[in-house]
Amino acid sequence: MSIMEVRDVSYSYDGKKNVLNHVSASFEEGNVYAILGPSGCGKTTLLSLLGGLDVPTGGAVLFDGTDIQKTGLGLHRREHVSFIFQNYNLIDYMTPLENAALSGSKTPVMPVLKRLGLTESEVKRNVLKLSGGQQQRVAIARALVANTRVILADEPTGNVDDQMSVEIAKILKESAKETGKCVIIVTHSLDLANEADTILVLKNGVLEPKQKTEAEE
């Protein structure tokens, strides 16, 4: 059963040209989805609509079969989804431990950070003193710790090297399988997309599923 669904969703910035044009798709728990597409095609916009950061100009975004606008966007962001951003978006005056605990979830933070490769001393430093890869792991830890069923990742490997990209992809996939979370990744990286269970391509405002081989091509 799908946990999230976009139903006939359209979005326009100026009210004239649709960035998203009657897009429909559904996302299931325990799966990793990769959304590919050229720059400016509306991938991040779609992710924002899924995360309740914005509202569609047409159609609806459903969580567990209910329109998220009816349940409330704040509540949706707080209880249903968590984000991983390309530029990490960590609060600069907090330690990794405090950043990861920001959502207020009761899930212990330290084991997750340790699993992601951060040491005892690293988790107590200021986040700005960590490398880019470490900061992204903290951002992933924050998403994993949050008691949500969907993780929305916007170019999570955009600022890290290839080796780290593979590691991040592996972590996200494992999380999806182990915890049953639905992971939706917006990316340019074919390598990362190939780690996903399903690849979707957004082109000319339309979202279409693609075979992994097609994506590779």
């Binding site: 995360g51 950061l53 704040g74 509540l75 962001r77 707080r78 209880e79 968590s82 984000f83 951003f85 978006n89 960590l90 609060i91 600069d92 920001l102 959502s103 924050r142 949050a146």
Partner: peptide, 14 residues
């Protein structure tokens, strides 16, 4: 503004 955005994205109310 960055901090505000991060807090909003993790579901903290305005």
């Amino acid at each position: 503004i960055r901090e505000t955005g991060i807090l909003l994205s993790v579901g903290v109310k305005k």
